[in-house]
Design a binder for these strands. Structure first.
Lengths: 379, 379
DNA sequence: GAGGCCTTCTTTACCGGTCAAGAGGAATCT
DNA sequence: AGATTCCTCTTGACCGGTAAAGAAGGCCTC
C-alpha cells in the first residue's frame, strides 16, 4: 500500500477477525483422490474417474453412489493438473502482451481487443492466462506455464518469448506482428489506413507534415524516418503507409519518436515537433493516444486545431471522440481482430488435436479513414 | 466476423500463404522428455531434471553438456503440467469476475483494479488466469483449472463458483464481497463513503433525493429500498450508507434499480426517476457510470445540472472528470485495492505452502467524498 | 590413515489422473 | 443352443516430472 489514501484518511484499516484457521480442526485432512473414493465405494479407481469424466461408461445407479461418496468425502472433481498431464490439454490459452501487463489494462484499444477475445472464447470454455513478454529472470511464464495455445499480441518480435513458444510447438496466432508463413496471423491493413490518412492531409493542401512515431524501443526524439531501426509491426507499416502518400507529393516529413507509451511522452514528443521554426501545418500520429498528446501540446502553445494545425490519429480509440476537437483518425475494428484471433487459435488447437498438424491461416482486416474535426486545410 | 467492416470495405481479406504445415518434414517427431536427454547424455533422468531446476546440484561441466544436448534435441524445459503435478504448484492465480468477462475489460474501475493486481504480481512471477462466475454447463473453469489461489472479485456470492473454490481448499481472497471470518478479504468502506455523499446533499439543503441502484440480479424499476433482495456487497453497503444520512434527516427516498450494467440501462433508469411528478432535486448513484447515464437523461429532458438537479456518483471513475459537469463522487483507491488483494493472496499462498494453514487477513480501505460541479443547493 | 563431510549422481517412490485393452455376464441374434 | 454383441467394470501402463534418501568417490581433518 504505497499510494496515499484518498483525502487524508488514515492508512488502511486492517481488521483481524481473530486467528481463525482453515482446515478441519487442526489435523491435516489427507487429500481425497479417486482412490479414496474407489476404496470407499468398493470399485476400481478407473470407474470413479469415469463417473466424473465419462458418465455414459457406467450404470447410473453406481454413478450416483460414487458421486454421493465423493460429495461426502469433500471431493470436488478430478485434479486439474493431473488431468491435464494425463489428457495433454489444459483448457487454457495464453495471451502474450507487451512487457507491461499494466498497459494491457490501461489502453482502451487493448482492453477492447481482450474483451472481444474473452467473448469469442467463452462458449469454448477456454480460460485466458495473461503473460508478459518480459522475461524477468528465473521464471519465464511463456516457458513455465501450461497452456493449449497462445496469442501473441503486438509484442517485440525479438523477444525470446516468441521463440520459446514456437519451440514448445503449441498452436500460435500472431496479432499485429510481422506475418510468417508457418504461423497463423491476424493483422489489420495498417499501411493502407496510414496511406489514406496521409493522402487526406495532402489533399487538404498540407505540405509541411510531421510524423509522430511510437517509441517502444530504439532511439527517441527527432529521427530520420528512412533509417529507423525495426520496431513493432504496426509502427513500421503505418510509417510505410504515410510515406506511400507523402513521397509522391514530394514531401519529406520531419519525424519524432516518443519515449515510451501513453499521452505524457506523446505530449513531450509533440513539443519537439511543434517548437521547430518550420512548424508543420499537420501531424500524422501513430495512435489516437499520441494525437491526444499533440492536442494538449498545441493547447499549451496556443496553437489552434485545426485552423493552425491539423492532427490525424490512428485506431479510432474511444477517446478520439471525447477530445476536442474530435480526432480525424483511421479506424480499425479491434473487436473483429480479437474475434478473428480467438477463432484462429481455437481452430488451430482443434486441428492440432486431431491431425497433429496445423494449417496456418492469415487474416488481414480492413481499415478506413474517419474524418472528424481535427483536420482542415492549412490557413 | 459478424460485425460490419468499417467504411464499406469488403469483408476481411484472408490470405493463404500455401499449405505450409509445421513439424519436421511430415514424420511426427517423438516428444522429447527428460529421459530422452538422459539417454543421450548417459546420465539418469533425475540429473537432467536437476540441470534445469536445481543447477547447484550438479557439476557445471555436466550441466552444460546436458543443456547443449537438450538444446540440440529441441527441448525447451520441463513440461509445466508435469512439473505442476509433481511440485503441487502451478504458478498461476485465478481471478473470478462477474459473469461477463467482457465487462471486466470495459469498465475502467475493473481494468484499473486488474492492472494494479498485475503490477503487484509481476515480481512474484505468478500469472493471471481470468475466470467467469458463469458456470456454462460441462466446463466449470473454477473447478477444472489448475491454480495456486484465487481472487474473487465482486461476484454473485450465491454463485456455485465460490463454493467450489472453497472446497478446493485453495487460498482465496474476497474483494468487494461480504467478508467471512475464515477467508481473507479486501474491501473499501463503501458505507462511509455513501454516507458522506448523502450527507453532502442533505447539507446542501436537498430534501427530495432519489436513489439509483445497480441491478445485477433481482427486480428492476422502482423499488422499495428497505425490502431489497440481497445483491452485491458494494451495492448493499452503499445503500445502507445513504440511508444512514437520509433517515436522520427524515428523508424517504424513491429508488430505482437499473436493468443490467452500463450507461444505457442507467439512462433508462434515470428517466424512471426524473419523469416522476415529484421529481427529486438530487440523485445518489451507485456508480459514476450510472451518474453519467443520469446526466444524459437530464440533458434529454432539458434539466440543468446542477441548478435543477444535483447528481452524485461513486468510485471516482476517470469518466467522472470527463463528463460535464464533472461529477461529485466518492473516491475509492481502486489501485490500492488491487495491490492489497494481490498481496493478501500471495501471502496466503506462501503461508499455505509452509504452514499448510492460512491466517485470514481482512483489509478495509478508506473512501472519501470528492465534490465537483454536479452538486449544488436546490434552486 | 581412518573417520567424517561434501559434492555429485542415482535409485526408488510417488503426484493424481486417463487411455486402451480385456474380462465377465446378460441380452440379442440366428 | 451356441455365437455375437453390448454393457460394465477392471487391469496394467503411462503422462513427464520432482522429492528424498542412498551410494560412490574425493578432500579434509586430526
Amino acid at each position: 500500500m504505497t499510494s496515499p489514501p484518498p483525502h487524508g484518511h488514515g492508512s488502511a484499516i486492517v481488521a483481524f477477525y481473530g486467528e481463525v484457521s482453515t482446515g478441519t480442526g487442526g489435523d491435516v485432512a489427507a487429500r481425497v483422490t479417486l482412490q479414496t473414493i474407489a476404496d470407499r465405494v468398493g470399485v476400481s479407481r478407473m470407474t470413479v474417474s469415469n463417473a466424473f469424466s465419462k458418465p455414459d461408461q457406467l450404470s447410473a445407479a453406481l454413478r450416483s453412489r460414487i458421486l454421493a461418496a465423493a460429495d461426502e468425502l469433500g471431493y470436488v472433481g478430478p485434479d486439474p493438473t493431473a488431468r491435464a498431464l494425463a489428457r495433454g490439454t489444459t483448457g487454457t490459452i495464453g495471451i502474450v502482451l507487451t512487457s507491461s501487463l499494466r498497459f494491457a489494462f490501461t489502453d482502451q484499444v487493448a482492453t477492447r481487443f481482450l474483451g472481444a477475445i474473452a467473448e469469442e472464447l467463452a462458449p469454448t470454455g477456454l480460460a485466458i492466462t495473461l503473460l508478459t513478454s518480459a522475461d524477468s529472470g528465473a521464471i519465464v511464464p511463456a516457458r513455465d506455464l501450461a497452456m493449449d495455445g497462445a496469442l501473441i499480441y503486438s509484442c517485440d518480435p525479438t523477444s525470446s518469448v516468441v521463440e520459446v513458444l514456437s519451440r514448445r510447438r503449441m498452436p500460435l496466432v500472431y496479432v499485429d506482428q510481422d506475418p510468417v508463413a508457418e504461423v497463423s496471423s491476424v493483422n489489420v491493413d495498417d499501411r493502407a489506413g496510414a496511406r489514406a490518412a496521409a493522402q487526406h492531409l495532402v489533399d487538404l493542401g498540407h505540405r509541411r507534415i510531421g510524423l509522430l512515431l511510437s517509441g517502444l524501443h530504439g532511439p527517441h526524439g527527432v529521427v530520420d524516418p528512412d533509417t529507423l531501426p525495426p520496431d513493432g509491426h504496426a509502427s513500421r507499416q503505418r510509417l510505410l503507409g504515410w510515406q506511400d502518400a507523402l513521397r509522391p507529393a514530394g514531401i519529406i516529413p520531419p519525424a519524432v519518436r516518443q519515449d515510451g507509451t501513453g499521452p505524457e511522452p506523446a505530449r513531450h514528443a509533440a513539443h519537439l515537433l511543434l517548437d521547430r521554426p518550420d512548424r508543420p501545418t499537420a501531424v500524422l500520429c501513430f495512435s489516437d493516444v499520441v494525437a491526444h498528446g499533440v492536442l494538449q501540446a498545441a493547447a499549451e502553445l496556443g496553437i489552434e486545431v485545426p485552423r493552425e494545425l491539423s492532427v490525424a490519429g490512428f485506431d479510432d480509440n474511444p477517446i478520439a471522440v471525447q477530445v476536442r476537437p474530435a480526432l480525424t483518425t483511421v479506424r480499425q475494428d479491434v473487436e473483429a481482430k480479437g474475434r478473428a484471433a480467438a477463432a484462429a487459435l481455437t481452430a488451430a488447437i482443434a486441428q492440432s488435436r486431431t491431425t497433429g498438424d496445423i494449417t496456418p491461416q492469415h487474416v488481414l482486416l480492413p481499415t478506413g479513414l474517419v474524418v472528424r474535426d481535427s483536420t482542415a486545410p492549412p490557413s
